[in-house]
Design a protein around this nucleic acid. Structure first.
Length: 457
RNA sequence: GGAGAGGUGCCGGAGCGGUCUAUCGGAGCGGUCUUGAAAACCGCAGGGCCUCGCGGCCCCGUGGGUUCGAAUCCCACCCUCUCCGCCA
């Protein structure tokens, strides 16, 4: 996870500005550069000494083979030279190790510069790229119209939309009447923030996962991956979960395993330390996984319902692209996530995140936010990013740009397609009726075996 | 969990203290020949780092150790395979 010394030497000003734009410490660029210079000087001397030692050792072998006594004066002199070089090497190697450790440390704290077309600033500078669908109000007027939801929803559903005025309820109230969440019991058996889905609620989870994966594999050309729910330390380090976000992860200390916070971690690590041959790219994976997040420090925020929980479900898109193709691939991937929301008939907007709101490792990032009319808020359901070569460098994921050519780093991207819990919340709030029923979006009807969920009598 | 075997460059597979600066075969790349292809032959050829370049250094699962010198010897750990045990 770093910009790499190569680029640091070539365009330090770009890296420096990138750090400033993201509100990070730009002085580290100078520090890293100085360490790199020192490292190279040390390396040169160490290499020279090692060459000396190798030559001496080789000569010892030849001298003995030539008939000299192994304990004789000739051999003893050579041996002394080799030992002297060895002592110097030990000192230099120790110093190199120390300098490289510091360099890596500095590099780790230099962010990936944002692409030139990313707005500079904090969250206020986020750009709304586009909005789709009708933003339903919480208060439904008396004349009965279901609005945007109708476009993709069950035909004939509008006639039940009422005559009397009413107010949409937040999703947790809708779910309670439907008896599809078991939040208190989830807290009992695991803890607060570990939701239990019951009946049609469970079916809804299964239907959404299946819908997303089916579209991705059959229409979008993704290869489906069903990854482990835990990863080892090397993988957690590969995508940068440790050391930066260690507090966010659940750790199985006994076996040194980490519960995955997103399928990005296991799936991106699939190709760690590998070289794609010419013509193998792009490689595009879609993967479902449960996602575990401690959400340390988030207590009290969004605690109602299932907006912020410790375990949720998500289908993730992970792309390995050539450097030339990654910019286009990001736009394409965002389009794939949008397509899912449209088919579900959920209003959403696409935000281009500004430098200080996009994260340390992303070069460019879009957020998809779905409209939840029951709470009248935008909910983030997808985050699609291009990391360029920043992640790939740490994981040594490379490709050959031409047959037999030297390997170069790939570009990695990933994006949610989509995160379930908030989509469920949006569905419940968008498609609810005054009687507590919820119409089922078209793509999920076959799987659920009904076009409407009704509260039990 | 127990016993045994093994981890070498893209793959297969030698090497078991000093011409190993890692043999050989296949795949790969370039070339000769050919209308084209195959075959044959010739050449190049793993990954990383330092260097303008010449060239040098490092990597034989990982990390330590012994030695003037380790793929080769010693220790620890990891992984794979076979058998046994246990078990969705």
């Amino acid at each position: 996870m770093s910009v790499g010394v190569q680029r640091l030497r070539e365009e330090p000003e770009v890296i420096r500005k990138g750090a400033l734009d993201k509100g990070e410490d730009a002085t580290l660029v100078g520090v890293a550069l100085a360490l790199d210079t020192r490292r190279r000087a040390l390396l040169s001397e160490a290499d020279a000494r090692k060459a000396e030692r190798n030559a001496a050792s080789k000569q010892i072998g030849e001298t003995i083979k030539g008939g000299a006594a192994p304990g004789g004066p000739e051999v003893a002199a050579l041996r002394a030279a080799s030992v002297a070089a060895g002592e110097r090497i030990a000192v230099l190697d120790a110093e190199i190790g120390r300098v490289e450790g510091e360099l890596e440390d500095a590099l780790l704290r230099i962010p990936n510069p944002a692409d030139p077309d990313v707005p500079v600033g904090d969250a206020d500078a986020n750009l709304t790229v586009r909005t789709w669908g009708e933003l339903l109000p919480r208060a439904v007027p008396a004349v009965g119209a279901a609005g945007a939801a109708d476009e993709a929803a069950a035909p004939g559903a509008a006639d039940e939309a009422g005559t009397a005025a009413w107010e949409r309820r937040p999703h947790w109230e809708v779910a309670e009447r439907l008896r599809i969440f078991e939040l208190e019991r989830g807290a009992k058996i695991a803890g607060s923030g570990f939701p239990v889905y019951r009946g049609a609620g469970a079916g809804l989870q299964r239907a959404l996962i299946d819908f997303f994966l089916t579209v991705h594999t059959r229409e979008n050309g993704f290869t489906e991956i069903w990854p482990p729910a835990v990863v080892n330390a090397a993988s957690a380090r590969g995508t940068g979960q440790i050391p930066d976000k260690e507090d966010q992860m659940y750790v199985v200390t006994r076996d040194e395993l980490y519960l995955v916070p997103t399928a990005e971690v296991p799936v991106t690590n699939l190709h760690r330390d590998e070289i794609f041959e010419f013509g193998e790219l792009p490689v595009r994976y879609a993967a479902y996984s449960p996602c575990f997040r401690r959400e340390a420090g988030a207590a009290g925020k969004d605690t109602r319902g299932i907006l912020r929980v410790h375990q949720f479900d998500k289908v993730e898109m992970v792309l390995f692209e050539t450097p030339e193709a990654s910019a286009t691939a990001l736009e394409w991937m965002v389009g794939r996530a949008e397509d899912l929301l449209r088919r579900l008939g959920l209003a959403y907007r696409v935000l281009l995140m500004a430098t200080r709101d996009m994260g340390f490792v992303q070069a460019k990032k879009y957020d998809l936010e779905v409209w939840a009319p029951g709470v009248e808020r935008w909910l983030e359901v997808s985050s699609c990013s291009n990391f360029r070569d920043y992640q790939a460098r740490r994981m040594a994921i490379r490709h050959r740009p031409a047959p037999g050519a030297r390997p170069e780093l790939v570009h990695t991207l990933n994006g949610s397609g989509l995160a379930l819990a908030r989509v469920v919340a949006a569905i419940l709030e968008t498609y609810q009726g005054p009687d507590g029923s919820v119409r089922v979006p078209g793509p999920l009807q076959a799987s659920l075996g009904t076009d409407v969920l009704r509260p039990p009598a």
